[in-house]
């Protein structure tokens, strides 16, 4: 258990969050609560390979969404092409999901969603009709 270790002093004026426990793999919702993606990875600022004491820690630049999840599981090269970046400034709130401050129309949308929307779904009769 952790009884013998001292709790680390957490800096004031902020909160500690474990990335994998509370951020990674969480849903991303737009300002209207519509799912726009899942946090597949976090883009961090780069740091030198060898860290002298006092090197500033990397910060989170963006949430990353895309078919990266398969790459994370099976390993292999990162397909940069389809990666969607959601800059950290668009984040509105960290709850049970990550709420973004912009509507889906202003946020990056995976090409497959757009392609299927234009090419297939919108073309079927009633494709743009809201059911009920």
């Amino acid at each position: 258990m952790t009884e013998d270790l001292q709790p680390a002093r957490s800096p004031s004026g902020g909160v500690l969050v474990d990335a994998r426990l509370s951020l990674l793999d969480r849903q991303m919702l737009d300002v209207d609560g519509v799912t726009v993606g899942v946090v597949d990875d976090l883009e961090l600022s780069d740091v030198p390979a060898v860290l002298e004491r006092g090197t500033p820690p990397p910060s989170v630049l963006a949430l990353v969404h895309g078919p990266i999840v398969l790459e994370r599981i099976f390993g292999g090269k990162r397909p940069h092409g389809q990666l969607l970046r959601f800059g950290w400034d668009t984040v509105a709130k960290l709850g049970s999901a990550v709420e973004l401050a912009a509507p889906a129309s202003e946020l990056p949308r995976p090409w497959l969603e757009t392609w299927l929307r234009e090419r297939v779904i919108a073309r079927l009769p009633g494709g743009r009709h809201v059911p009920g």
Binding site: T35, G37, I121, G127, V130, G132
Partner: peptide
């Protein structure tokens, strides 16, 4: 799982991969 937009109460075009 993949974080697509989903929902039966939306217009199908709003959730293209879900309906496909």
């Amino acid at each position: 799982f993949f974080g697509w937009t989903w929902g039966k109460s939306k217009a199908p075009a709003q959730a293209a991969r879900f309906h496909t």
